[in-house]
Design a protein around this nucleic acid. Structure first.
Lengths: 240, 240
DNA sequence: CGTATCACACTTGTCGACAATGATTACACA
DNA sequence: TGTGTAATCATTGTCGACAAGTGTGATACG
C-alpha cells in the first residue's frame, strides 16, 4: 500500500471510503441536534457544512434529507433549513406515546429477554448508577436513555424500538433544555426503580414489569411537566 | 407573463416548479411500491428513473433516500437499490404493533373526535361499504386502510399516526400479495364492525371503542395469518 | 419621515460529467 | 472440464457549475 493516509483499508484522496460521507454528516449532525449543540431554530447552511466536512454539497444534502425524514430538521423549500423546534404544543401526545412505549417495550423484554440481554441491560444500569453517584446530570440523561433503549431491544419488536428511539431522542432534547433545573436534586429512587424493573424482566413477570414501567413513566412525565410548567418562556406570547 | 407554459404559476422549462421534482418521484414510487406495481426485490435504477421523470439523478437520489428512511427500499451502498422485501420473519412483531395501534388510535379518536372528524370518518366508511358491495377486493383493502387512518387522525397523536401509517402500508403490501385468495369470500361483517366502531367513537365511549378495535384487529390478524399459513412459498427453504 | 419599488446578492435546486466500486465476462492454466 | 485470475462494463457516489428563487438593502416617492 502506497497511499499515505492510514493502516486499515483503501481510502480515497479525502481519507474517506466511498459511501461513508453521508453517514458521517448524518450521525454528527444528529448527535449535535440531540445534544442541543445545535439549538432548535438554528439555520443550517449547506455550503458551510460542505466546507466543514470537506465534501461537496450533494452528500451533505442527502444527509439533511435523512434528518428531515426523522423530523430533526425542517426543510423550507427554496428558503432555508433549520433545526426543528421542540414541539410544546403536542406535549400531551408525546407523554401519552412515551408512557405507552415504556410499558410495551418493558413487557416485550420480560417476554423475550435472553441471558445476554439481561447482562447487557445490567451493564447499562451500572453506567446509569455511576452517573447518578457522580451527580452528572447530562450523563444521567444519556445513560437513562440507553438503559431503556436496551430494554426495548430485548423486546425485539422493531416497530416499537423505532418509535421509542424517536420518543427518547425528543425527550433528550427537552431534558437537556431544562437540565440545569435538576442539577442539584437528583432523584436517587430512579436507580432503585431500574433495579426493580430488571428483576421483573429477569423473572419474566410481564404484569409486574408493566406496572413498574408505568409507574416509572409517570414519574418521568411528571418531572418533565414540572420543568415545563415552571418555565413560561415558550408558553406566553410576551416577548421582551 | 411571457413564458408560454401554463396558466397557474411560473414553471421552469421542464413544466415543473422548482422544488417539486423530489416530491413527485417520492410519491409516485411510494405508491407503486405499496401497490406492488414494483415487486419486492425489484432493482431500482437511478438512470432509468431520471429518464422516466425527465430530471437529473440528483433529485431522484434524494427521493430514494427518503424512501429508504421509511424502509420501503433498501440501499446497498456501492451496489444496488432494491424494493424492500416483505418481512415475514418479524410478522409476530408486526401483528403485535398493528393490534396495539388499532386500539390506541381508536381510543384516541373516541376521546378527541370533533363533529368534523365524525363526518369525515363516515364518508370513508361509505367508500369502504361501496367497495365491499361491488366486491372489489383491491379497493376494499385501500378504503379500509383509509378508514382506519382517518380514525387515527381524529386521535390527534402524531406519533401514533406515523407508526400506524407505516404499519398500514406494510399491511397493504401483504394483503395485496394475497388478495386473490379472498377475491371470492368477502367478509361482510367488517362493514358492521366499522359501523359499531363509529358509534362508539361518536358517543365517546372509550372502553367500548377499545374493545371493538381489539376484536377488529384480531379478526384482521387472523385473516392475514391464514393467508400466510396457506402459502408456504417463503417459509420453507425449498427453492424450485 | 414613512412606505413602496427595484436591483442585487445569497442560498438552494438541478444538472452533466467524472471517479470509484462491484459484477460480469473472457481467458489462462491446471 | 473446472477453477482462479484479469480485464471490461455497468452503476453508483461525488464533484463543480449553473439556474432559479428569496431575502435584503438601496432608492425614489408620497
Amino acid at each position: 500500500m502506497s497511499t499515505a493516509s492510514s493502516v486499515t483499508g483503501a481510502k480515497s484522496k479525502n481519507g474517506r471510503k466511498r459511501g461513508s460521507g453521508v453517514a458521517v454528516v448524518y450521525e454528527t449532525l444528529r448527535r449535535e441536534i440531540i445534544d442541543l449543540t445545535l439549538a432548535p431554530g438554528s439555520p443550517i447552511d449547506e455550503v458551510q457544512l460542505s466546507e466543514r466536512f470537506e465534501m461537496s454539497r450533494t452528500p451533505v444534502r442527502e444527509a439533511l434529507v435523512r434528518l428531515a425524514a426523522e423530523n430533526l430538521i425542517t426543510i423550507l423549500t427554496n428558503r432555508a433549513t433549520v433545526v426543528s423546534q421542540i414541539d410544546f404544543v403536542n406535549m400531551p401526545a408525546f407523554f401519552d406515546a412515551l408512557t405507552l412505549m415504556y410499558r410495551v417495550t418493558t413487557r416485550g423484554a420480560a417476554e423475550n429477554r435472553t441471558e445476554a440481554d439481561l447482562e447487557k441491560i445490567r451493564k447499562l444500569q451500572a453506567a446509569f448508577a455511576r452517573s447518578v453517584e457522580s451527580s452528572d446530570a447530562l450523563e444521567m440523561i444519556s445513560t437513562n436513555r440507553d438503559f431503556h433503549y436496551g430494554i426495548a431491544e430485548a423486546g425485539r419488536n422493531k416497530y416499537y424500538i423505532n418509535l421509542f428511539a424517536q420518543l427518547l431522542d425528543d425527550g433528550l432534547r427537552i431534558l437537556r433544555l431544562y437540565y440545569s433545573s435538576f442539577n442539584d436534586d437528583l432523584p436517587p429512587q430512579y436507580v432503585t426503580e431500574h433495579d426493580d424493573l430488571i428483576d421483573a424482566i429477569a423473572r419474566q413477570d410481564v404484569e409486574a414489569a408493566d406496572k413498574l414501567a408505568l409507574a416509572h413513566a409517570d414519574q418521568i412525565v411528571k418531572q418533565i411537566q414540572s420543568y415545563v410548567a415552571a418555565d413560561r418562556r415558550t408558553s406566553t406570547g410576551l416577548s421582551l
